[in-house]
Design a protein around this nucleic acid. Structure first.
Lengths: 194, 194
DNA sequence: CCTACCGATCGGTAGG
DNA sequence: CCTACCGATCGGTAGG
């Protein structure tokens, strides 16, 4: 589907994601945005209610993608190491397939007003909890080392998958699957020569 | 040393670091900044040359701290696993001791004008190279697994140390040393039960 | 370091 | 979707 076949509203959100990720939310003017779409600044308001509405929707869309991708994993009956691989893959795939909105999500959420801001904070807690649960299960199953600090382990995994938004380049040779497999293998088996 | 004992210029950079990290560069006005210092907006220009000067200096200061901390490690004669521990500790300590400027560094460097922007890009390459070298040495020494992908390994380490700026809280129970030791131990030995 | 001001630009609206 | 406009605010300067 080409851009011009999409509804105007969607085009606006797409371009806003790109500009916000490249320049930042506050450094992007509504006239910049309109210019990229070939219309006048004031004309945007026929389709959207305001600038923050754009940010709210982009951030909500990104967190929704993480949720859809990760929470369906909860009930899956897999050994913890395989579940970790799969979670990392899905997490990285969301970032890789949505580089613009993921970047906006990680960089601009602090500029949200109170209510959507609080939702992002709450969302982040649920993602932390998801990875902590996964680690706890792994310890219980005897798949992971018993002396792991659950919080720090989840932290390390989250560092690896989240930081991809800073260096991943779509169209390169590395697929999200490649990245996840390599990261998971290093995390599970360690860097040290056995 | 209390704030009021510092030169005005330093006070301005300190407050700018905090405000830029909390609100972002473009969302912080020079009047916001002046207000926190108890002076008028125009009075700032007796001490600094402009808004971007603040950002340039904050970013330069942060990258300088990383350089000073990491590059003295190069000539140190340590086994690669110990060197990795020490590098991670120093890296995390720079982030933890400079949360404001580190946050500005990671979030706002894209808003720099051409020349300082290019310097940040070049700097990032030197840091990548530092960690890749460390991994290569470890493989040569037989301390690290021979089948490691050097670039991805450096990537994973950098993810762990850089991402700390998003979750570390000064004054908590975890010291930079604690974090580095735990992360390094997990990375070196792996999560899997042996 | 202040007062007073500059031109530019901002997000958003009215009326068509 | 455009033209024309609003008040507010921006970074920065002159003169003291």
């Amino acid at each position: 589907m080409t851009d011009s076949a999409k509804p105007r509203r969607e085009q606006i959100y797409d371009v806003a994601s790109r500009l916000f990720s490249e320049r930042g939310y506050h450094a992007t003017s509504m006239r910049d945005l309109a210019g990229e779409l070939g219309i006048q600044g004031g004309s945007l308001y026929a389709h959207i209610s305001g600038k923050e509405d754009l940010l709210v929707e982009i951030v909500r869309g990104a967190s929704q993608q993480f949720d859809d991708s990760l929470f369906t994993l909860r009930e899956l009956d897999l050994p913890a190491d395989q579940k970790l691989r799969e979670a990392m893959f899905r997490h990285i795939r969301v970032v890789a397939d949505n580089m613009d909105s993921a970047t906006v999500f990680f960089h601009e959420w602090k500029h949200l007003s109170e209510e959507p801001y609080a939702q992002v904070v709450a969302w982040r807690d649920t993602i932390d909890a998801f990875y902590r649960e996964l680690v706890e299960r792994g310890i219980e199953e005897g798949v992971f080392r018993a002396d792991l600090d659950v919080r720090m382990t989840a932290n390390l995994v989250l560092s690896a998958v989240n930081w991809t938004y800073t260096w991943y380049r779509p169209g390169g040779t590395l697929t999200p699957r490649d990245i996840a497999e390599q990261f998971a293998e290093m995390l599970l088996s360690g860097l040290r020569q056995a």
